[in-house]
Write a protein that binds this DNA or RNA. Sequence first.
DNA 1: TGACCTCGGTACCGTATGGTCCAGTGTCGA
DNA 2: TCGACACTGGACCATACGGTACCGAGGTCA
Lengths: 231, 231
Amino acid sequence: MAERADADDGLLVRIGPHPAGRDPGHRGAEGKRAAIVRAATELFLRQGYQATSTEQIATTAAVSKQTVYNQFGDKQRLFRAIVLGVTVTAETFAAGLADALDGIGTPAELDAALRALARRYLATVVNPQVLALRRLMISEAARFPDLAAAYYEQGPSRVIAALGPLLGGLAERGLLEVGDPDRAAADFAFLLLGRALDEGMFQVEHRGLTATEIESGAAHAVDVFLAAYRP
Amino acid sequence: MAERADADDGLLVRIGPHPAGRDPGHRGAEGKRAAIVRAATELFLRQGYQATSTEQIATTAAVSKQTVYNQFGDKQRLFRAIVLGVTVTAETFAAGLADALDGIGTPAELDAALRALARRYLATVVNPQVLALRRLMISEAARFPDLAAAYYEQGPSRVIAALGPLLGGLAERGLLEVGDPDRAAADFAFLLLGRALDEGMFQVEHRGLTATEIESGAAHAVDVFLAAYRP
DNA sequence: TGACCTCGGTACCGTATGGTCCAGTGTCGA
DNA sequence: TCGACACTGGACCATACGGTACCGAGGTCA
């Protein structure tokens, strides 16, 4: 197997040294670093920070503890790398919102677009991984205040912040009647997500929602939102 | 009786040693137990379960570690006792909701009553202690799944469950137009609390909301709710 | 090919922590 | 007055965990 892989630099933040080494085993292409990241991500999300030992991470990644320390310095830095890596996906979601509300001309189109957006939004947020990350960040907010803040800004808050101007734009075109776009965005978000998020926080074994539940939750949220904000 | 009982409830941290030996009276045992509960509550809420050592609890309660174990058996049982004790207050809150919506005859009265209820509800939930407990339960949901579930049922969920029938009653009297009372209750709750709760979860040092913010948040939530649910 | 270098595996260290044990001591009931 | 009782203080144990030292293996370069 190819031992030196250029492939190992694909994924996330790269902190430590690395390329110089080979991999006596046969995992060059994969990269031990990536294996560590994968293992740590899974373990942190499932068990939390404290409950996950560096040794367990090493074992799960089929790597020695020393390698973990060589690559990431210490446990905190590893954790930070994981969280920042995972958080990236939230940004792309926020960025995609604009498309969903593009080219709307009639109330019927608005209704349909909002429903579609709501479905996607809800489905994304109740994803078990996303819920787990959220739980994790809340749990570690005391130990990593800056990380928690960063996660919040770039995740949950970012989406709402992106939604506000979009609703404002719809209002300008007479499709909505919105006093404060940011508040309207938050209203939409929590009408849609509030209950599911609440439940998801306290149930570690949260089987996501069924397609029907998502559909129905999205429809209800949009109905209420439009009943309040339709011109 | 029990001179010590009074001495013990100076609010928080108590480090100084204690008069050695037996604690005066059978009230003594109760006093120590209460002191342990108080200390543990504060520490668990502030630091979390793991980060709080039994020794720290003992020291803070001005009690020997052995006494902690005598009283509660082990750390987990102590934790359970704390959480269950604290959770009780949520029930009284839920029970008080009915009064707030009592004797409403006109839309104007409804509006005023909802605003008052919303203010109280919001102020209660953004209370730093309440937020801390919520964070704590989310953090420990993996270690104490049953406890987390119990907390959720008797806390957040209970309030919404209590609100549903009340809204349903108002609908029967023609003051609201509600399809699904439970959903309407959840809508009300999350319109009101969603954003504050969200922020509060990620900011450990969350200074509650100002009176103005509470007023304005409550007013907005009620406005939106009524815009959607007014007949 | 051989000196040199980097990396990783293992053993290891120090510390913190939950929990136990025990002897001394002061209080209360009999 | 005396014994039962509960609490204290502190030593103590086992364990777990983050982090490090060290040495050998496998590659690199001349």
